[in-house]
Amino acid sequence: MTTVVRVDALRKSYGSRHAVRGVGFTVEQGEIFGILGPNGAGKTTTVEALAGLRHADGGTVSVLGIDPQRDPAAIKEVLGVQLQEARLPDRITVSEALRLYASFYPAPADTDELITGLGLAEHRDTRFAKLSGGLRQRLSIALALVGNPRVAILDELTTGLDPQARRAVWDVVERVRAGGVTIILVTHFMDEAERLCDRLVIIDKGKVVAEGAPAELIRGAEGERVFRMRLPVPFDQVRDRLQDLADVDTLTTVADEVEVRGGAHALPAVVLSLAEAAVVPDGIRTLSRSLEDVFVEVTGHSPEPVEVSA
């Protein structure tokens, strides 16, 4: 694997507010890499520094071997960026916008192919003001890709979209990656990150507070497993034998269920041990953590409800 993006000890303050305080991560070629965090965590400042739009106070950034801080003009040739709070003139049509943006790049993509690929064919002559939120986002992705970038940054891609439009946009992102583009996805939607990202960082108060593949993060560092079961016999009857199992850490009763916490092999060990005692549980369910649980643990607060942009 080739590392295409490397951020190290990035710092940026606005006056006395420290927006980014030593963020570091790497992105490998062909990945969908997520940057998660609450609002104001420093996500947008980080990607703006990556895109050569913002001058950092300290640290190093390298994208495809280019230092965007030193050479912002060079980075803009090879990076596709979709930013929040950006829009197009009301009267420009979809195909005009794509042709215009294509003209800025040395080796642009085929605009007709992009229009078809992103499902904009029926809307090629529609003016920006008349496009729905979902179509605007698709156009925005198309514009980020029109320069044939090897890395694309997509910031808050699905904010303000209805569930159906979100899923359509997710499909597009996966297709783009399949086409060989490395994607950096900035989001505060946990489900989006869980569904799309190969790896991600969670940023809070300007620092990376967690890093890894979504599944890894959800599993937790210790690989702890939690499950609950209903038993046909009183719990006391089996408590001792379960307590002695190497993989079981804690046993608690929750309502009419027994909650077991332990290592990766806790579940088979418990079932086997119960079978030896001729006890067959009435029911077993595993409790899976979600990325949201991880987020709450590392940032100390729930993901904000998303403001729907007008």
Binding site: A51, A73, A86, R87, P89, Y105, G147
Partner: peptide
């Protein structure tokens, strides 16, 4: 007006000067 709307912000990410 283009700056306030974000039209220029969109273009800022491209090689256009």
């Amino acid at each position: 007006a283009e700056r306030e709307l974000g039209v220029l912000r969109r273009m800022a990410t491209t090689p256009m000067r």
